[in-house]
Write a protein that binds this DNA or RNA. Structure first.
Lengths: 215, 215
DNA sequence: CAGCGAAGTAGACGCTGACTACATTGCACT
DNA sequence: AGTGCAATGTAGTCAGCGTCTACTTCGCTG
């Protein structure tokens, strides 16, 4: 990612004073969270890193929450793309469903700063995911995958939305615990370890989602 | 909850200037988070609510993080108690395991402020749960419950710690999504709804945890 | 009843998010 | 080509925050 300094991708002429401050602020936010932690994220430090004064960000974002919302939206877009990509590699519906969940966990491990912003305790207004459109509708992807599994008989009947909630809970819980380092005590800290764990857990859940025998 | 004003439990004489500022600060923190949200929690406002000046809390807590750590610890204690209580009502090991998970989710729904502090993005030092002792060892409770299920043959062989991670992921994910209001769009907002969902999800997972047939 | 230490007060410092007024710069339009 | 305007960034200000230090008040112990 990057293109630091004066813009150079499409042309050499800097479009504005900075070039593309908006994007620079988004990147600086993520870098700051990654390096110093979420608590250290301040609008002023972000501006400092982007090389502008403390009030400049207000030309691009109404307030701090708006900046974080933009970071979150970018995160949802990336996450959804990651899920689609990994699902496309699988042939059977149940494996696609598993890949969907694994991709969720992997995204969290590889972009912890993004994940934290997306699901953090900020935001007076929750940032969709449950009711979104187009590029960022990760939940829709999940529901579709479950419906597909039901059609091919790998998953029991029932409201796909409700079953999707269960899948979402599992991978969201795992991702949250990993990102917050709560599993470091259990020796899980690397991406491959997390991937293996995610695969095991989704397999377990898909088994549970199979055609009912008891209830 | 409460005992506002001068202390009255053991005697009428107020022990100190305030009575019991430490406890008052903990309660004020929770009330503030519940009413105004996590972002509104400031040491100064907490002190204001407790009726003392802004520096008084430093007589009881080294800094803001120490106050939150105390809130979290109290939360872990309550949560563990809730789990024990609900598990004691069940007769079979698998139902006890389910009750353990449901209690986790119910605690989050009934004490969202506590839950947020316990698993929030603060804390440079993670507050145990994975390696704790006595009253606050919720994870140990879970592992023991799984071991019990394995002994009675309801749950497959394997490292109980690893299987416990799966259970934890599921209920932690559900609890997080509920507390953060991410499921409000799906129409889940009341405690009974959350309880039903938690029961359904844990049933599903326990089914998946059953003796292996496929793999 | 004296005094010592714990508990709370008052004030200060640098930082933050947010607002304002002002300067600069690129683009559109004549 | 030149002018003017709106977009962009600057500089200064304000209240509120976490934290520190010096001071005051109170309750308990000797």
């Amino acid at each position: 990612m990057a293109t630091r300094g004066p813009r150079k991708k499409t042309a050499e002429k800097p479009r504005y004073h900075h070039g593309d401050l908006r994007q620079a602020l988004l990147e600086a936010s993520l870098a700051l969270i990654s390096e110093e932690g979420f608590g250290a994220l301040s609008l002023r430090e972000v501006a400092r890193r982007a090389g502008v004064t403390h009030a400049a960000p207000y030309r691009h974002f109404a307030d701090k929450e708006a900046l974080l919302a933009a970071v979150a939206e970018q995160g949802f877009r990336t996450m959804t793309a990651r899920m689609k990509e990994r699902m496309a590699r699988e042939a059977s519906p149940d494996r696609r469903l598993g890949a969907c969940g694994v991709a969720y966990v992997l995204f969290a491990m590889e972009h912890p700063a993004h994940f934290r912003v997306m699901f953090g305790p900020h935001f007076t207004q929750p940032p969709h995911l449950g009711a979104s459109e187009g590029d960022t509708d990760a939940f829709g992807l999940l529901v579709a995958s479950i419906t597909e599994c039901q059609r091919s008989g790998v998953v029991r009947e029932g409201e796909p939305q409700v079953l999707a909630l269960t899948c979402w809970s599992l991978v969201h819980g795992l991702a949250s615990l990993l990102v917050d380092g709560k599993l470091a005590g259990s020796g899980i800290s690397t991406v491959p370890q997390a991937e293996a764990l995610a695969e095991a857990q989704t397999r377990l859940l898909v088994r549970g989602l199979g055609r009912a025998s008891g209830d």
